[in-house]
Design a protein around this nucleic acid. Sequence first.
DNA 1: CGATTCTTTGAAAACAGTCAATCTGTGTGG
DNA 2: CCACACAGATTGACTGTTTTCAAAGAATCG
Lengths: 194, 194
Amino acid sequence: MLDHLYDYLQGKFAISKEDYILVQQASRKRKLRKGQYILQEGEICNFVAFVALGCLRNFRMDEKGQEHIVYFAIENYWTGDRESYVLKEPSKYYIDCVEDSEIILFSRENFELLCAQIPKFGELMNMLIQKSFMASQNRIHSSISFSAEEKYQDFLNNHPKLANRIPQNMIAGYLGMTPETLSRIRNTIKARNT
Amino acid sequence: MLDHLYDYLQGKFAISKEDYILVQQASRKRKLRKGQYILQEGEICNFVAFVALGCLRNFRMDEKGQEHIVYFAIENYWTGDRESYVLKEPSKYYIDCVEDSEIILFSRENFELLCAQIPKFGELMNMLIQKSFMASQNRIHSSISFSAEEKYQDFLNNHPKLANRIPQNMIAGYLGMTPETLSRIRNTIKARNT
DNA sequence: CGATTCTTTGAAAACAGTCAATCTGTGTGG
DNA sequence: CCACACAGATTGACTGTTTTCAAAGAATCG
């Protein structure tokens, strides 16, 4: 029943049936409801998660209770708090579900074992971190260079699929602006296109 | 004469003399003057560089000629444009020297060879990318969550060594604000501490 | 249908950017 | 050694953008 992940890994490096059985044995599936947390501030992130269905977000909460979102993970994306995982320190992040979701969880032990047992799997993870880094660089550039409207346009260009399924207050929290500002920006864009 | 890199690698994984000779043969040293470029927009980044001395910056230029700095590399840091390197696509970045510098350059071919020949070297690179990613995440958080003054304070906390040697207009370009704004922020901080 | 959450709108205030002028320090050439 | 040029930093007045707070409208879910 882990077909989603199997298709994904097939697409990445043509995993063998036998190796996939290892993956299956190392993981467990979890169904989650919208709003449910898989990580909370202060906990050590001892897992890596693959999103088979739905959408999750990584965010921090500030003293005023405002949520600042650093990452969305939809189908075929991985999530977790890399920093807490690597350093084995309490996380500064929350991870919760934006929609009802299905994820495949790997405990730290199992995940490291898999990376060692299936070299291609380990390489894939290195490649993913590299891609994450490249994406982060681009996000940093956008966030230090662009006006609020430009940031939103950039978001639409880079994440057309997210734009349609994520509430706007979260998009605002991802872009570093208030929901009111985002709403006004959408207005002026709409006005311009008429 | 590549002692700086030798000490660095020693500190990272106790490299053997023989392996270090490989590193030496795969690299070449370059002295650079302040302002000199090692990468310009449109070029493909076919190298990885280690900074033995001095300071370099990665930045993009917008239509108005404004420079947006995504990264500073000082002694014992690595630089280059990872995205252009990996994708073999023209870079969107410039990399130039903030001070007179000495760097150790690895061509793509030599670098990949080294990673394969010296497994610990390859692992180190993966680890560095991972750390870069973690640093990027934190920078994204700061840039979507903080006011201009908080961003500056955060910069002082995280990069005390950079604050003293980098001109303020560049710090402003790194934090995503104008030099004027940064100057005023420094004023209010100074006023508060008297 | 009612309750809750999300989005929009308005007016005022806070914040950051722009433009122009001045000040400071550094290094260079006469 | 001085005078000058130059780059970087500061200041002031003004403009524009974004936030804040409050309220009203839409949409969604049980």
